[in-house]
Amino acid sequence: MEWDWQYSGDIMPDLLDGLKYTIIATLLGYVIALVLGLVWTLLRRAPNPVVRQTVRWVTEFIRCTPLIPQLFFFYFVILPQVAPALHTVLPFIDFQEPIAAGVIALGVHYSTYTAEVYRAGIADVPRGQWEACTALNLPRSRVWTDVILPQAIRKVIPTLGNYLIAMFKDSPMLLAIQVVELLNASFQVGAKSLKYLEPITIVGVLFVIVSVISSILVRRLERRYATV
């Protein structure tokens, strides 16, 4: 079978439509992962041991199980229950849509990874900083927002960047709940003409290009915040 350049050009608009969903899922999911991860980390330092242990095991559970069954769980079980409530808070989003479930599942899944990253970053802040806060009699909230977190987060920026790439590469799994992202778009185009070679190859090459470029960017971040 020959590579068909004409066909490759014709399918590009469909693939770009899919790319739109891939980018939405990755970026919105990443925002959820960054925020929720920090919440997990801070809860793991809560004074109440029941809270600490619950958060520890819940995050361990989410981290150790695959994304696809989690997508099913969010899409079929959790979202139908909470969609009406969420809809009243954010009326411009339809939470019954597969893409909403996909974004939330992807974000929650990766928040358990970013939580570990934040935790390691906080543990890496020298003890002297904590002691200085005590010596200066800073209130608890200022210790976190002005002393510990700025130092901890600065150190973990490159690692957090790695997880953005990882999420981009996991976004094709959203096709399990019928989100028409890049891979699903290519698959549907291929199914129409039974010519799968061109669309899927283009998607594969696109993924390699984006990943290689972004890993070069992350390496540059690493040099800039040179810590690890």
Partner: peptide
């Protein structure tokens, strides 16, 4: 933790 990041 950085080493186990699936990105790079």
């Amino acid at each position: 933790v950085s080493a186990s990041a699936a990105g790079t």
